[in-house]
Design a protein around this nucleic acid. Structure first.
Length: 820
DNA sequence: ATCATAACGCTTTTT
DNA sequence: GCGTTATGAT
């Protein structure tokens, strides 16, 4: 056998052995895993197992390197090795380690692989699954979000750009606060230049790699006065962030791209480091993110992107579907593999989704299919009003749960967050446990921002924004006038405010406040030195004490809830310290800056999940209710002017439909109260796009619907009468945890509502209950608490009264309950 | 400084 | 309709 013949057989046998290692994948999935070299575009439909592919692809790289995609045979391989491989190729099951080594061709070290995702949640899932498959070595893989990858790169290499590697990260609220300030000082009217809009123009500019100067030049050239104003704002905004050593979310990527573009040594360093680049959710990448990925991949072009053009729903934030549509133009010789087999949904659900998305013209074209059965047809329910719609959803869930389903089997999806109100109301009345995802978030709460601002100032004293937030909080006699003078002086000299405050004696206008300022300075200095000696946990406690923050809160009910949140933040710190390799204050601040509440969505919990369609991307549920399927709502009234926007809405609808595994129920309301007006909308065009073979529509749409059952009067009795009652006491139950909207944490901590006028005298304190407690109920007698489930602003009790279980809302029934 | 009232304005929002 | 924010009064 000549060498050529030998190599051919060797490569074939090797490929067969590797294929055996990935035998549990389908044909297309396996091809995606084995095509390791060069640019690869993976068009992965919803539910087609793309994370599985990503995991196995990485496993392949680490085990076999480029062996599955190459005909190269190692010099030292001989007849004996070939015989061993050919024998192994015929077997099935796990490939033994020594055979793997025989097959390997430049196996990749884990730290040479970077897998970029959009959300922390996706990154975490990737990490967990990689570790499960590959063991502890998987920790060295860079599985992280675009933003955290950039933070890591910048912390190491950003100094050449003249930015301190200890930079602080500003979140959107911080950016907005700075921008408001800038606009005010430039005398730009907030009506004419809404801060958020200005920020978004700047964001687009950065996406085009335009610096403030570039932007200004473009505005000059275009003779566009409005753009010229915005250019000024852009310049000033950037100046402030840089002088505070702060980067906003966009900057993290923008500066990383500049760094790699303009500094060949830095670029080379990172390109040598990463041999393989993988990008998840590629349809949602912006131009900058594309540039980043492409630059990291370098000339090797070992770049694999996974995406679904039909699920691109963030165009409005700068994502460009162009990235996926023109991948092959940008990377010559790119291979394209489509994953079209869906493992999630039934035939009817996929049929409906396909028939909707077919109406889009801007797509690469792809048809999902399933080997699972047809399943049940979709159902369209048209309710009379939005209240009836919400009730229908709650009732249907109650019935299904009575039939053995679990609360967590259901998700209710809507287009806009406001739509959750009606649903929440109905769910509370009918005692359906639920969780709302999105809305006001833990890290947006005032007390959390206060404490993290202290942490930020200790970490970076140049952070003027955070400094101003805490300089007189708790009150220490540094009033508005002093702050204003500080700001002016600091602005004029382009120095950090803290420096100016330390020199207060030198400024006549600050003389009178110098003593108080010195007090504040020494507080910060003391904290800075404590931060160097104490552990994070000890430091946190010291900070609360030295600043007097906790003490100043007092002990009102609201303050107690705030204190609870502050302690919750502490457990975040403790958690972080326990998990990080080298815990540091800076590291913790990075973590929380890039963290969102969505990451803590507990889909496994025993509650129905309520969220927007956007938040639902990437998730799946046995039953999905898609509510508000009306024109002007979904598609949104603002999107019906342009075909592009309408197509984005349609993709959004496609995302919603493909979340369902078993059953999909669409609802619409004839009348809906929206923005204070009652509107009457036609059923959504998207519903009309679903053919009758996949959906049951009401023959003659009428009030109500077939299967609404009568509410159980037992638990409604109190709800109806008492549901308006507001008690803020006693809701701090141990079991009652979780992030949600509107201060669900402790019964309205962050959004305290004024107590409504009562005809009844003062409220009776609510008992604190947990599972196992014995109680006496005024109407039902003695019982045992079976479970306590948190619900936003309330809690659901399941109580066993001598054999019969009843479900009661704590707020409504609490007044009738005593603990025994 | 803290509260109350008026005024506005309003898709979606991975970081 | 509701929730956030700006402004003014005590």
């Amino acid at each position: 056998m000549d060498r050529k013949e030998f190599e051919k057989r060797f490569a074939a046998a090797r490929r067969a052995v590797i294929e055996r290692d990935f035998a549990d994948l389908n044909e297309m999935q396996r091809r995606s895993v084995m095509a390791t070299e060069g640019p690869l575009l993976l068009l992965a439909g919803a539910g087609s197992g793309k994370t599985t592919v990503l995991i196995n692809r990485i496993a392949n790289l680490i085990r076999y390197g480029r062996a599955s995609d190459s005909d190269e045979v190692p010099e030292e391989a001989g007849e004996a090795e070939l015989a061993a491989l050919e024998e192994e190729a015929g077997k099935t099951g796990e490939v033994p380690e020594e055979v793997r080594e025989l097959c390997g061709l430049d196996p990749v070290e884990p730290w040479r692989i970077i897998a970029i995702t959009f959300t922390n949640k996706a990154a975490d899932e990737l990490k967990t699954r990689l570790e499960k498959k590959l063991g502890p070595g998987a920790q060295d893989i860079w599985a992280m979000t675009f933003h955290s990858a950039c933070v890591r790169i910048l912390r190491k290499s950003v100094e050449v750009l003249g930015i301190s590697p200890k930079f602080t990260i500003y979140d959107s609220a911080d950016s907005a606060a700075v921008m408001k300030r800038v606009l005010r000082e430039l005398n730009m009217d907030e009506k004419q230049f809404p801060p958020k809009q200005v920020l978004s123009v700047i964001s687009r500019a950065k996406d085009r790699l335009q610096s403030p100067a570039d932007f200004e030049a473009a505005a000059e050239k275009a003779w566009d006065p409005r753009q010229k104003y915005i250019a000024k704002a852009y310049r000033e905004y950037s100046r402030r962030l840089l002088s505070a050593d702060a980067l906003d979310f966009d900057d993290l990527i923008y500066y990383t791209v500049l760094l790699l573009r303009d500094y060949p040594e830095v670029r080379g360093e990172w390109q040598r480091r990463f041999r393989y680049v993988l990008v998840d959710e590629y349809q949602d990448t912006s131009n900058l993110q594309y540039l980043l990925a492409a630059m990291l991949a370098g000339e090797r072009e070992n770049i694999c992107v996974v995406g679904d053009d039909d699920q691109s729903i963030y165009r409005f934030r700068g994502a460009t579907i162009e990235n996926i549509l023109s991948f092959e133009n940008r990377f010559r010789d790119a291979r394209v593999i489509k994953l079209e087999q869906n493992y999630r949904s039934t035939g009817h659900i996929l049929g409906a989704a396909n028939s909707v998305i077919r109406n889009n013209s801007e797509r690469r074209g792809k048809n999902l299919w399933t080997a699972a059965g047809e399943g049940e047809k979709l159902v369209l329910h048209v309710a009379e009003g939005d209240d009836a719609e919400a009730e229908f959803v709650a009732e249907t869930i109650l019935n299904a749960v009575a039939g053995g389903m679990r609360w967590s089997d259901f998700a209710v999806l809507y287009r806009m967050n406001v739509q959750s109100n009606r649903l929440e109301y109905a769910f509370k009345r009918l005692a359906v446990p639920y969780k709302v995802v999105g809305g006001t978030r833990f890290f947006d709460r005032a007390e959390i921002k206060d404490i993290t601002s202290y942490l930020a100032v200790v970490n970076n004293p140049a952070d003027d924004l955070r400094l101003l937030r805490v300089i007189n909080n708790p009150p220490r006699g540094i009033g508005e006038t002093t702050v204003e003078r500080l700001r002016t002086a600091a602005g004029a000299e382009r120095r950090p405010i803290l420096d100016v405050a330390a020199d207060a004696g030198r400024y006549p206008e600050l003389k009178s406040a110098a003593g108080k300022l010195m007090g504040f300075i020494s507080l910060i200095m003391e904290l800075r030195s404590l931060a160097e000696t104490l552990t994070l946990e000890e430091f946190y406690d010291a900070l609360l004490e030295k600043t007097g923050y906790m003490e100043a809160l007092g002990d009102s009910d609201e303050a107690l809830a705030r204190k609870d949140n502050i302690m919750e933040l502490k457990s975040n710190i403790v958690n972080y310290a326990a998990g990080a390799e080298t815990p540091s204050l800076a590291g913790f601040l990075d973590e929380i800056a890039l963290y969102t509440d969505l990451d803590s969505v507990d889909v496994g919990g025993e509650s129905v999940i309520l969220m927007t369609v956007h938040s639902a991307k990437g998730l799946e549920f046995p039953w999905v209710f898609l509510v508000g399927m009306e024109e002007n709502l979904f598609p949104s009234g603002r999107s019906t002017n342009s075909e592009e926007e309408l197509e984005e809405e349609r993709r959004l609808c496609y995302v919603a439909l493909t979340r369902a595994k078993k059953r999909l129920i669409l609802t619409a309301a004839r009348r809906r109260l929206l923005f204070g007006h009652t509107t009457a909308n036609a059923v959504s065009r998207f519903v009309e796009e679903i053919p009758d073979e996949h959906i049951d529509r009401p023959a003659e749409p009428r009030m109500g619907g077939g299967f609404i059952r009568e509410p159980d009067p037992d638990f409604l009795e109190f709800s109806y009468r008492e549901s308006r009652r507001e008690d803020r006491r006693g809701q701090d139950m141990g079991a009652y945890r979780g992030y949600g909207r509107r201060g669900s944490f402790s019964g309205g901590a962050a959004a305290p509502r004024p107590a409504p006028k009562r005809t009844v005298s003062g409220p009776a304190p609510l008992p604190e209950l947990s599972a196992g407690d014995r109680i006496r109920h005024r109407a039902f007698g003695e019982g045992t608490v079976v479970s306590v489930t948190s619900m936003p602003g309330d809690a659901l009790l399941t109580v066993d009264f001598g054999g019969t279980q009843k479900r009661l809302m704590l707020k409504a029934a609490g007044a009738f309950i005593t603990k025994i």
